[in-house]
Amino acid sequence: MKIVVCIKQVPDTEAEIKWDIPKGTLKRDAMEATITNPFDEFAIEEALLTRENYDGDIIAISMGPEKANDVLRNALALTVNEVHRLTDDAFAGSDTYATAYVLASAIKKIGDVDVVFCGKQSTDGNTGVVGAMLASILGFSQLTYVSKIRSIDAGAKKIVVERAIEGGVEVVEAKLPAVVSVIKGINEPRLPNLMGIRKASKIAIPEWNAGDLGVDTGKVGSAGASTKVVEIAVPPPRGAGEILKGELEDIANTLTDKLIDLKVIK
């Protein structure tokens, strides 16, 4: 089985965000503390489990500047078989569609892929749509919010998954190839061991640029993006809250009155 996992380098949640204000994009290379997108850790683990259960090779891809090598090295340390960084000056400023289009081009180049794993969303952009767009561009089955993989049959080109959606779990059978975006809790991501880390540190990360991928540069980057950020603002702080003081009896009386006054409680 040929398994692709798409991963992203994101700023550490506590890190200071550095914006390129005129472009409305992030200065990813200028930010020190970066991590593998937390949701992608579940995607990598699911790829590893799939390889353990069904055999095959895992190819991890990441689109981004040189810093993205860190997350690909981490994937190598976790024993994925092959990695590629998708990078080109033309890619900078790509929106959701352009990102999905570049990833789709890499998946086509890899060829004969059975399953693509990605995390439900990134913790920086938070769009949560690249997986679904990827499926739509590639014409693969679109399986989102996946909380469990029940079975994969590469021979019969069939996959059965559970999707955690509003109000319950939907069991879906789909054709392969498929893009599977996974949620937290589908597994317990393992940590790389020391030998894996040491081995990965010595491997040169191969790069694919727009030309290698056959990407139409008019459709990517700031030039190709249809969505553009025109304003970045810090939301106004919530009004200073009121700390209720006094005896518990009185506080509880005041609070319940105030909440009932909102006319929300039926």
Binding site: D95, G128, V129, M133, R163, S226
Partner: peptide, 23 residues
Amino acid sequence: ATSQGTDIAAATAGQLGFGLCTD
């Protein structure tokens, strides 16, 4: 921006070839 709304919006934008703004 529910599971269904996000699924169909993303796939539709993918088919039409446009980016989309979410949430």
